[in-house]
């Protein structure tokens, strides 16, 4: 059995979205090792959580896909296919005010302690090229409203946010 590793904690960000909105509490936390066999378990949890939060079926699938692709990228590129490295996922409720309307949503922080990522490698490939590879990042960006990558100290953090359809501020 591998030695229990300390799982990374999320960083606080000071981006514009958080200044204009407010961050809710923790909904779910998952701590997994970098073993691809665990991906299906994470997908199951994310799909159930997004259903519970009221996302549409299409959005549930796309958010689940984004998290799955992000984890696979960490396992492959950040941890170089090692199976016993720590990854922590934090799911928190998110809110923002857009033109007088309150939008609720889901913020997902995915933290690892792998090597620093070269930002140039995060671009993905042009979609007009018909060749394998480089699709994951496109799928993540298409699914989410916000995709941000941060490195602080030894921790990489990917922040994904998806907002639900608008609800009235007066409601």
């Amino acid at each position: 059995m591998p030695q229990m590793k300390t799982f990374p904690r999320p960083m606080e960000s000071n981006d514009q979205q958080n200044k204009s909105g407010q961050r809710g509490g923790l909904l779910l936390m998952l701590a997994v090792y970098s073993n691809p066999r665990l991906l299906s378990a994470v997908r199951g949890a994310v799909e159930r959580l997004t259903e519970t939060l009221g996302f549409s079926a299409v959005q549930c699938r796309s958010i689940t896909r984004a998290v799955d692709e992000a984890l696979a990228n960490i396992m492959r590129h950040t941890y170089d296919n090692r199976l016993d490295q720590p990854i922590a996922l934090y799911f928190r409720s998110a809110k923002r005010c857009q033109q007088g309307e309150i939008e609720s949503g889901l913020e997902i922080l995915i933290c690892d302690r792998g090597r620093a990522i070269d930002m140039n490698t995060l671009r993905g490939r042009p979609l007009d090229q018909i060749r394998p590879g480089g699709l994951g990042l496109h799928l993540i960006r298409q699914a989410m409203d916000i995709v941000e990558f941060t490195r602080k100290g030894l921790t990489n953090q990917l922040r994904l946010v998806k907002y639900l359809a608008q609800t009235s501020n007066a409601a």
Binding site: R43, R65, D68, E69, A72, P132, G133, L135, G136, L139
Partner: peptide
């Protein structure tokens, strides 16, 4: 379910 590596 099929991910990007499956599509590749």
């Amino acid at each position: 379910y099929i991910d990007s590596s499956g599509v590749a």
